[in-house]
Design a protein around this nucleic acid. Structure first.
Lengths: 217, 217
DNA sequence: TTATAAAATGACCAGTTGGTCACATGAAAG
DNA sequence: CTTTCATGTGACCAACTGGTCATTTTATAA
């Protein structure tokens, strides 16, 4: 899905106008999803004719893919190279969730588009699109966990596939709770850094030690 | 949101016809969400005139709420009274996730509707609707955890609010992975009971003991 | 059988959608 | 100044949407 190009006409536009079009479209897709987004609404808000939009993009899908790809490029490297750092797995996890919060704070629209299309009907290339934005995927987490196990930071009998799945589920839900009030139940919605820190601390503590009382079991 | 009633005309219909209408509508909402669902498509599949649908329900929203409510009634008591059982918190959690799997197996359409409207734009009464289907909510989990802590099954310094949030996130994701292939990464998608058992065992193990090596930290 | 009420029907409506295209505008080239 | 050509435009299109309603069909009652 890399490198979606608009028509040349669009690239000839003043950068300011390009930006206005992209951001207006992103806002529309974030609010209404792919199918629900209205091109009429977009051109009206931007202040251009409908025909002009079709000088820039072949169709709705082309515009959508370009907007998403544009967002991805902005976010590039959000999680870059945490792996290489010489810190414990739990510090790596902490860095990862902070990176996620930083991303949804800085690019709320692209994250909202991601949420909209997660379960939406017949979104073009959904699997590929959400794949590019799921930083907490197996592909990312599993190597971290494996190396941690080799270093002895993780119990040798832990099922790492399951551990990655669990981390993914919890981190994703935290970002959702930060973004949508009706998902939140622990005060994460638009929380300040101090609150986030406190919650992440509590989270990591349970991650490390588990819930059970009395050491091993 | 309890007790959504259709018009009397609908209730006078043969039960078989009622069922056909509800199930066809449920299938349409499950596939396309609230806004995306087409009444034309529904009446065509059922084989009735458009006007007839409006003899049964006031409008699209009324039909939607009735279909959802109907699904809820079927599912009623899926998690009933686990709390009262004299088993450990981890057995209670195990029962809870099994109850969830049983539900999405038995009523896949209503669960798919739930997923569709989770992030959809402007769904009527979304918060209330998803509230009725989120069995793993704070309201349900927190009392369980509190009693478990009092019984000494959970470490006394565990943040129970966070623990409930974590359990919610992971259990929800398991049901999603069971339902949608593109969410799954550990072989949960439409998994058989044996596989589910194995995965739940691995999950509970990590829940209890945590990830960290070496007991307390 | 007839009269009355209830329910089923589908043509129709206004509104919206994504997309098109003949034309107007403007800038550059000769 | 004129010609050429890329860009901008918005009326227009067919396809669809949720919703209406005069009319017909069916069931009930007298």
């Amino acid at each position: 899905m890399k490198g979606i190009e608009p028509k040349k006409t669009f690239l000839a536009l003043p950068l300011e106008k390009q930006k206005r079009i992209i951001e207006t479209a992103a806002s529309e897709f974030a609010e209404r999803g792919f199918k629900g987004a209205s091109l009429n609404s977009i051109v009206e808000k931007v202040g251009i004719a409908k025909g002009s939009l079709y000088q820039y993009f072949h169709d709705k899908q082309h515009l959508f893919l370009y907007v998403f790809d544009y967002g991805i490029r902005l976010a590039k490297g959000a999680l870059k190279e945490i792996e290489s750092k010489e810190i414990s797995i739990f510090e790596q996890i902490r860095y990862s969730i902070f990176a996620g919060f930083r991303f949804v704070k800085k690019h709320p629209l692209i994250y909202q588009i991601y949420l909209k299309i997660l379960f939406e009907d017949k979104v073009p290339f959904r699997k590929k699109l959400i794949g590019t934005l799921r930083f907490y995927s197996h592909k990312y987490l599993l190597p971290l966990l494996k190396r941690a196990k080799e270093r002895g930071e993780i119990r040798p009998d832990v099922d790492l596939e399951m551990a990655a799945f669990m981390l993914d589920a919890m981190m994703e839900k935290m970002l959702q709770a930060y973004t949508l009030s009706y998902i939140d139940s622990i005060g994460l919605y638009k929380a300040d850094d101090k609150t986030i820190n406190r919650l992440v601390d509590a989270w990591i503590d349970i991650l490390k030690k588990g819930l059970a009382n009395g050491g091993i079991d």
